[in-house]
Design a protein around this nucleic acid. Sequence first.
DNA 1: ATAATATAGTTCATTTAGTGAACTATTCAT
DNA 2: ATGAATAGTTCACTAAATGAACTATATTAT
Lengths: 143, 143
Amino acid sequence: MQMKELIERYQTAMNQVYRRVNILLKEKIHSDITSDQFATLHYITKNEKCTSTDIANEFGVGKSAVTAQINRLFDKGLIERDRDDNDRRVIYLHVTDKGIDFVEFTEKALFSELEKYLTNFDQEEIYTFIHSLEKLAKVMNEE
Amino acid sequence: MQMKELIERYQTAMNQVYRRVNILLKEKIHSDITSDQFATLHYITKNEKCTSTDIANEFGVGKSAVTAQINRLFDKGLIERDRDDNDRRVIYLHVTDKGIDFVEFTEKALFSELEKYLTNFDQEEIYTFIHSLEKLAKVMNEE
DNA sequence: ATAATATAGTTCATTTAGTGAACTATTCAT
DNA sequence: ATGAATAGTTCACTAAATGAACTATATTAT
């Protein structure tokens, strides 16, 4: 099979899955946060004391985009800013109690939705798939 | 391993890969079209005589979003509209010669970029991965 | 020690992409 | 022949991104 065809198939499938997961998050789970916002919130939850710059690097966007995103999460009371006393330029981000509850609730809901689809896969296939996906993410992040 | 952890890892990796491919398309290949626009253009190329409604279904967005997207591609001279003579409500979309050249060029460029990363994978792993990804896309599209 | 440079984050104007409701035009159904 | 359905557009609005200009700190070099 040609590499070109494989890449085309990859692109089509990846796009569909990405969009379907977003729709799931949007329609089935909550209407008061977007999937981009949830991804950022999730990152802050998993990386306590991270900065805007960290997020910009993780998601591959400019810092001004992160400021706007942070503001939206802050306005919803899900995160807070915390200035570093040693280096006053730096602002650490952390999730509020409300934010922690929110992430937990959303993950549970998302899990129970995705579970339906995962019944089509056996454990072995899931492991192999995630392993390859993480490997791809890793080599692409290194560049 | 817990399903929750697997889903979290999936989300993180998927997000990273999705964004890296977009950055690749944006930085390395062309500055005059977005990856969303390219995805739409690619769909029209592969589905000659498709309609706005087809695209809305494929990408899971509203028809008004498609109208706007189609306008952007039309303004760049990459696609054209073609009204159906039997059912005057329907407008078929097709790619112009310029659009065909553009897709071909972009795919070649994208391929040569992605090729670098794919050297880390053997054929077997790529096939298995794409097979699983397409299966996931399929079961999620069925719902 | 001070001047120049670098870093962290924000603001602002602009573009892209999406929503959903209201609309036009056409076709189908009873 | 009228009423419902379908295809696509327009409009006002929000989210997310860019990049340049900016503020406020830290660091480095002379």
